[in-house]
């Protein structure tokens, strides 16, 4: 499946969707509301997010099932948006990773029942997964990597078929961010370069660049990515990555840099970019809520939670 509405004039097909998205953007949580959520008690925070739509239809949200409520809300939003966009494939770009994650966990649990597991994924992607599952020699770990590669390849193809420069850059940024974290984890665990390189997903940064970054000194790594969105987050965080052996702040800054690309959707008159930007915003909102509630449950200090939050799209 590819974008059906594409080309230079396709943005006008998105007039209704863009209007609807502009209305939905008002319901996104802004930085002030995230701050408030951090300050209040866990029970009060649950009530506050319920007011913002994070609730089950029939019952009050319980503190214990906040995560499932967040997941449900995000999925409901995807379904709602899919219902009114001219190209449902645009939403598939975002739901793909959830479906692949489901497939991965299912594969881990019951590697044998392959046909059944393939039912989770979109119809248009089934043939590729079927090919993968047909390879008997493939173990769960290799399948994980192969599935990631398929997912990012398909996402890049879909983005390209939209004809939108912003979508292409956005999904390339997701791929580069994923590769950087794989690369760093590989280096930290002193994995063989070939093993790390085989786990990288397709992106506009070529394999030789990653290979060189694997061999170079830590302080030289940002230079290899100077032409990408990741340069500044790398420069800002390389020291802390080496010192603390933690990617937390790098991940946060990479997400914030991706959000900068997504925010371009707020400036377009109409088009798939507005929808994609909103969906990234919704995804990061859910991520922030998970950080807040996990932090509260663990008894983390408000400053610690605040430091881990991503920027708000609102």
């Amino acid at each position: 499946m590819r974008f059906q509405v594409s080309g230079e004039m396709h943005d006008q097909e998105y007039a209704f969707a863009t209007g609807r998205i502009r209305g939905m953007e008002n319901q996104l949580l802004d930085a002030a509301r995230f701050r408030r959520l951090i300050e209040v008690s866990l029970e009060e925070a649950v009530k506050l997010i319920a007011e913002a739509g994070y609730k089950k239809e029939s019952q009050d949200t319980d503190v214990s099932d906040v995560n499932s409520v967040i997941n449900l809300h995000v999925r409901r939003t995807y379904e709602q948006v899919k219902g009114f966009v001219p190209d449902p494939a645009l939403v598939d770009l975002f739901t793909l990773k959830y479906e692949v994650a489901l497939l991965k966990s299912d594969l881990r649990r019951r590697w044998i029942s392959k046909k059944e597991t393939a039912l989770f994924i979109p119809e248009w992607l089934k043939h590729r997964i079927a090919e993968l599952l047909a390879r008997e020699s493939l173990g769960p770990q290799a399948a994980d990597i192969a599935l990631d590669k398929i997912m990012y390849e398909e996402a890049a193809l879909l983005a390209r078929s939209s004809g939108s420069d912003m979508l292409i850059r956005l999904f390339d940024a997701f791929a580069i961010a994923s590769n950087l974290l794989t690369l760093f984890r590989g280096r930290m665990r002193q994995m063989a370069p070939e093993q790390v390189l085989s786990a990288l997903v397709p992106s506009t940064v070529d394999a030789p660049v990653y290979r060189a970054a694997l061999k170079a000194g830590w302080e030289e790594i940002p230079g290899f990515f100077s032409a990408t969105f990741a340069y500044r987050p790398l420069v800002l965080n390389m020291e802390s990555v080496v010192r603390d052996r933690s990617f937390e702040s790098l991940e946060r800054d990479l997400d914030n840099a991706i959000l900068v690309i997504a925010r371009e959707g707020k400036r377009v008159t109409m088009g798939p970019e507005a929808v994609a930007g909103f969906l990234v915003g919704k995804e990061f909102e859910a991520k922030n809520l998970r950080i807040i509630f996990a932090g509260k449950a663990d008894g983390q200090r408000p400053e610690t939670i605040r430091g881990r939050l991503r920027d708000s799209y609102a």
Binding site: A15, F16, T18, G19, R20, R22, G23, N26, M270
Partner: peptide
Amino acid sequence: VGMAGEAAAGVTAED
């Protein structure tokens, strides 16, 4: 008018 109407309908659906 059609283009603006579509966008207005989208916003009205939410608000």
